[in-house]
Nucleic acid binder design. Structure first.
Lengths: 205, 205
DNA sequence: CTTTAAACCGACCGGGTGGTTTGTGGGTTG
DNA sequence: CAACCCACAAACCACCCGGTCGGTTTAAAG
């Protein structure tokens, strides 16, 4: 039991710093030795716990990345309030986190999707699964909004979801280098403008 | 003179296939040998024409990437017609090109920005310059649209530009893997929806 | 204390990397 | 014909990569 705990702790440590470095430097540009140096561990320790660098990364996706996207982008829009309000708040918080993250390197999913595209189908599948989950939950939230009378019944829920995902992915890239705070503010203003165009028109008094 | 022509031709060839491979596999994951194998040339030829892999890449940016972005995303919005109409057409064409490109790996600028971020400031500067040029031209087009009475005078031109760049960057990533054609269609529909919310309200008849 | 296995160490391997150096065939020039 | 130089070839270098493996430490169990 105690051994099992230690094992879990070490693997957890390895995965956390692994994600950190992979996110910062990319998967192929981060050597296993780089990670082990950071952890003061040896190759032996690594290959005792993981079969390969690839398996290691997939475990990182499943154990850390999925949960991170879930808690940041999916859970916040699951409520029964006005969908547009929930999404606005969710994006606001997600972007604010990015602004305050000194080491922000953009949207982690975007970075990895670009890096693995055409190079590693197995990993791509895992990454695309996360995207799919996000998309499904966005579509569902928007449809809920239509049902609840907050969103115009004629809008294409999947189109809106795609547009939201696109703009979020893009702005995270653009926020990395130049004045992230100002860009977040400007982005949110335009997002609200867009939302105004798809919410139900209040009957003029 | 003839020698000079041959020199230019070889360098051009090297840069074109270099961009192709860098775009497909990333800069760090493409070795100089990979490129030379494709060209049936040797290391000697490469280092005769270029000082280093980095200088080589910067020449590719200046000679190919800048022009490509310019002709695809900037020139098409430089006219004096309705700015929103120009931008819509420009995005439509750019996305259509991506759809028909069998080897589409997303928006080249996004990929490179992600890869070099925090790793090579010199290259990052060149890439950010391109982004900046795009942004400036978008802002200018939108301001022209406001002046010409096509866009509501109260909209924040820089905000709109940021929103457009974000959504374009993002959708290019999302179009890579899953049903690019359908996503392009959905995206354009939402873009038009957004545009409707910032154009001048036609006086109701 | 002894046994045992989990957890970890670190030297090592084959292959690949960016970059350098030296060599060479062929066209130009004197 | 001979000296020369351009454009490239080919061998080479030091270094780094993911992965392997025999050995050592640690700590729980008997």
């Amino acid at each position: 039991m105690d051994k099992n705990l230690k094992r879990m702790a070490t693997m957890q440590r390895m995965q956390v710093t692994g994600l950190e470095l992979f996110y910062k430097n990319g998967y192929y540009n981060t050597s296993v030795d780089d990670i082990l140096k950071e952890l003061s561990l040896s190759k032996g320790a690594f290959y005792y716990h993981f079969d390969s660098k690839e398996d290691y990364f997939i475990q990182i996706i499943e154990n850390l990345l999925v949960r991170r996207v879930y808690s940041m982008l999916i859970e916040p829009i699951e409520g029964h309030d006005n969908a547009l309000f929930l999404i606005t708040n969710c994006f606001e918080n997600a972007l604010e986190t990015a602004v305050h993250n000194e080491m922000d390197c953009g949207f982690v999913l975007n970075n990895f999707l670009n890096e693995f595209n055409g190079k590693n189908e197995r990993i791509m599948k895992h990454l695309n699964d996360i995207l799919k989950i996000w998309e499904v939950n966005l579509v569902s939230a928007i449809q809920k909004g239509k049902f609840n009378g907050h969103i115009d019944r004629h809008v294409d829920a999947e189109g809106v979801a795609l547009f939201l995902m696109s703009s979020y992915i893009g702005v995270r890239t653009l926020m990395v280098e130049n004045s992230p705070s100002a860009r977040k503010y400007r982005f949110m203003a335009q997002l609200k403008q867009y939302f105004k165009s798809i919410e139900v028109k209040q009957p003029t008094l």
